[in-house]
């Protein structure tokens, strides 16, 4: 069995943890009409990564994480006032960062296989299979932190997602929690880049949430279901990709899509029976 290889075990552990984190906030982001924020932020992270690569930083995270967090805060901020503005801001930052990232890599890169590098950053690569124990630990610690934060602030996140104005008027510090959500989502995006690559992260964030929303009618059940679906899809996708030699990221997303379709139709059947 493949499980005897440590790199396979590492990949599975990290993959499952990342899938768990990314699905938790998915429900909130989908409901707040911020589905595309994952895309925008991951492109920012891509830009930051190419800068880090050019500067030959030994620890890329030191640059990528802060840059992504700052962009997340800015994006969620503008989104509060006008949705169209928020949309445009996401599109702007996302393509801008993507273009600059590629440009910088092209001009300054020392690598002999540039296209391969870019492709693997965008679509995820074997990097999930080449993790060092240190990276696995970092990933595990960050994931656990994200899950804990989510559980502790679950009720507040619900209140702010459902009705920000009401929450604010009755003394909940909605801005602070929006900020928290922004920071957490940025951390999740940076983590998830390892697994599925920049272009496919949104799928990891929104598909489990959308699938769960087809099946369940209350927030708690939707959240739990989306976490479970996400973990199952990631695990299954990785096994398939290891056995079949397919790309990890796209295989996971393909499984996510398949599960969404199943949920969509069973949701319709379920509703049909209830009515």
């Amino acid at each position: 069995m493949y499980l005897q290889y440590p790199f396979v075990r590492y990949a599975l552990i990290v993959g499952v943890l990342i899938a768990l984190c990314s699905s938790l906030l998915g429900v909130t982001l989908v409901l707040k009409r911020f589905s595309f924020i994952g895309d925008g932020l991951s492109h920012v992270a891509f830009g930051a990564m190419s800068v880090a690569a050019v500067l030959q930083l030994t620890n890329e995270m030191m640059l990528i994480l802060p840059v992504t967090v700052i962009s997340a805060v800015m994006l969620l901020r503008t989104g509060q006032n006008a949705r169209i503005k928020g949309d445009a801001a996401i599109a702007m930052i996302s393509v801008g960062a993507l273009a600059f990232g590629y440009l910088i890599m092209n001009i300054f890169s020392t690598s002999s296989n540039l296209t391969g590098d870019v492709c693997s950053t965008l679509f995820g690569s074997t990097s999930i299979l080449t993790l060092t124990p240190g990276e696995v630990w970092l990933c595990a610690v960050l994931s656990i932190a994200v899950v804990l934060i989510f559980i502790i602030f679950y009720n507040k996140i619900f209140a702010v997602t459902f009705d920000e104005e009401f929450a604010k008027a009755t003394g909940t510090r909605a801005e602070a929690y929006n900020l928290l959500v922004a920071v957490v989502i940025a951390v999740v995006i940076v983590l998830a880049m390892n697994l599925v690559g920049s272009l496919l992260i949104s799928a990891l964030v929104i598909f489990p949430a959308l699938s769960a929303m087809r099946l369940f009618d209350n927030f708690k059940a939707v959240t739990i279901c989306s976490a479970i679906l996400s973990v199952i899809c990631a695990f299954f996708g990785m096994i398939v990709s290891i056995l079949g030699g397919t790309p990890v990221g796209s295989t996971i997303v393909a499984v996510d899509v398949a599960v969404f379709l199943i949920c969509y139709f069973s949701g319709r059947v379920k509703r049909g029976i209830v009515r």
Binding site: V27, F158, F162, F216, N218, F219, K220
Partner: peptide, 10 residues
């Protein structure tokens, strides 16, 4: 997707 209970409690 929220139940009545969850919303009132919020």
């Amino acid at each position: 997707p929220a139940s009545v209970k969850e919303i009132v409690l919020s």
